[in-house]
Amino acid sequence: MKLLIAFCGLIAASILFVPAPAQANWSLSQSVVEREDQIQIVNRLTCVPSKSGSTSVNSLCMTLCQASTCEWNEPTCRDCLGTSSEVLRDIFTRLTATYRTEFNTQNTSADSDDFATTLRSMPMILLGPKSPYDFFNSSQDSEFGRSVEASCGSKDGFVAVALDEDSRPMAAVFAICSSRIVRLLK
């Protein structure tokens, strides 16, 4: 019975709350699930075969998942739930003032490769609109949402924050938009 409930919980909660637009051949999502009586934040990357034959975005899945889809738990982020982290405060309240974007529209694969490589080499958390980590904004029409929109062109996107060896947030490093990945620089 317990397993059944957990399974139902998983199904119930595993839902993309920031679905990527239809034109993208990959999508990144974050969900809240309960598995083995533990509430967890789970990220999922799903790739669809590219009609154009381009492999650039699929390489994201290949690098990260070695498959067309994969999911991973958000890593433990020390002092990230709450208002104590200065880094998260900057991101949620003054993203555009603190970071500038480095658009590389000509060669997005370079950025997605960069993202995949970085994610494999170091722990990162993903912050989206209505993020569980957002203790700074009280509504979706927040400074953070507007900042993501300024970086991505729409509010549907994530900001990837790199963690240091003690699992503390260091800085926002990527804006993961629905169709491209943008590096963020301080």
């Binding site: 533990q38 509430i39 967890q40 934040i41 738990n73 433990t76 982020c77 020390r78 002092d79 990230c80 739930l81 709450g82 104590s84 569980p132």
Partner: peptide, 8 residues
């Protein structure tokens, strides 16, 4: 148990 440890 997986979330509270991230509260300061």
């Amino acid at each position: 148990g997986k979330l509270f440890p991230s509260l300061t």
